[in-house]
Design a protein around this nucleic acid. Structure first.
Lengths: 194, 194
DNA sequence: AAATAATCTTGAACTAGTTCAAGATTTCAA
DNA sequence: TTGAAATCTTGAACTAGTTCAAGATTATTT
């Protein structure tokens, strides 16, 4: 069943009883999305936080000039949402879109609060994973300020080898904060030279 | 007493009893630092997470070329630390240094775990503030990719007018991801032209 | 009140990365 | 299996931001 990986994931940080797993199941839902389907859209309220059972998605912002900027990729065992929109139930600055057909477990706002009440250790779980996400985000800022595009690309490939296989190059360029043309040139340079 | 603002700060998210405030006091400590004094150093283990009662600090990374990159400023009512180092008790990638003489309330690693055990609602408190920090961090990434340096500077001034007054320009440049010379030129352009 | 250290400014030369345009290649739906 | 859409490549012209160097200004310490 789809919940197996989620429960294992949570159990790496806290320990859920059988009864608690049942509560969890009852307060969440499974959502399947096609390739290129939106999970949530910029301008709309993000109603759910999503755990990825299977598939690959991107969370991205479209700026005033229409350029897209990837905030985050999400693959199996990761979470995705416009967290600000979800927490404040206000219009999102980011969209979440499937890069591959995907299966998600979704947590609604009220249901999440209910889960915190009935399974308080989930507070600890979400504190922990948010702290990790925050640490990764800070690291991304410093890397983008201190290293050039070529080194950032190397680091991305080393850290996320599977994602690199599954995602179009121009989205990786966007994640790295460079143009797709420039990433293409970086790759060429790596093939011909060192 | 110095704990007053911390307790108020926590009470905006959860409600502490008198007894809980006493536990909090007993498991934390007050630390005063001079201007330019380190609170924690890159390469060392970050032993404490610090709440700022008074003063102003910066958290920054020094890269291989010796260039400094500001990860975060912290003023009254904010938190600062190399969170990764603190959580994993491993050597830090960031230093925290006082920009002004400052007063901190410090939470040690073991004491923090003890606090979570004795006052479980602190899990909720730290979950909440970490989620906010994460949201702000993601926003900073996207801003730095989608807006030019001049706009980023405008946004910084609007969002943190007090910090701008208290911090040297070259640290603001570093926070924005540009050279101090270029920030100086941006400021001149703003004075002379529009 | 000096002396030293820290910070800020300015200009000239440079470069990492962008933009535009056009074609080549791959993927996917019908 | 073909046509359309999506993605990737390449080169030429450009620009936002850097680097270096030197002097000016402001803080801080003695």
């Amino acid at each position: 069943m789809s919940y197996h990986t989620l429960v294992q994931h949570i159990n790496r940080h806290v320990t859920l009883t059988e009864a608690e797993v049942e509560i969890l199941k009852s307060l969440t839902r499974i959502k399947k999305v096609r390739k290129r389907q939106f999970v949530s859209e910029q301008g709309e309220i993000t109603r759910y936080e999503s755990y990825v059972v299977e598939g690959c998605l991107r969370c991205y912002h479209t700026d005033e000039d229409g350029n897209e900027h990837v905030v985050q990729f999400a693959v199996e065992d990761w979470w995705t949402a416009d967290l600000h929109s979800f927490l404040t139930q206000s219009p999102a600055h980011f969209s979440v879109e499937a890069i591959e057909p995907s299966v998600l477990i979704q947590f609604g706002y009220n249901e999440m609060e209910e889960l915190y009440r009935s399974i308080p250790k989930l507070e600890r779980f979400f504190r922990t994973i948010t702290q990790r996400a925050y640490v990764a985000s800070q690291k991304r800022i410093i890397t983008s300020f201190s290293k050039d595009a070529s080194k950032r690309y190397d680091e991305f490939r080393n850290r996320y080898p599977t994602i690199e296989q599954r995602v179009p190059q121009y989205m990786i360029a966007s994640y790295l904060g460079i143009s797709p043309e420039f990433l293409s040139k970086i790759r060429k340079r790596k093939l011909t030279n060192g």
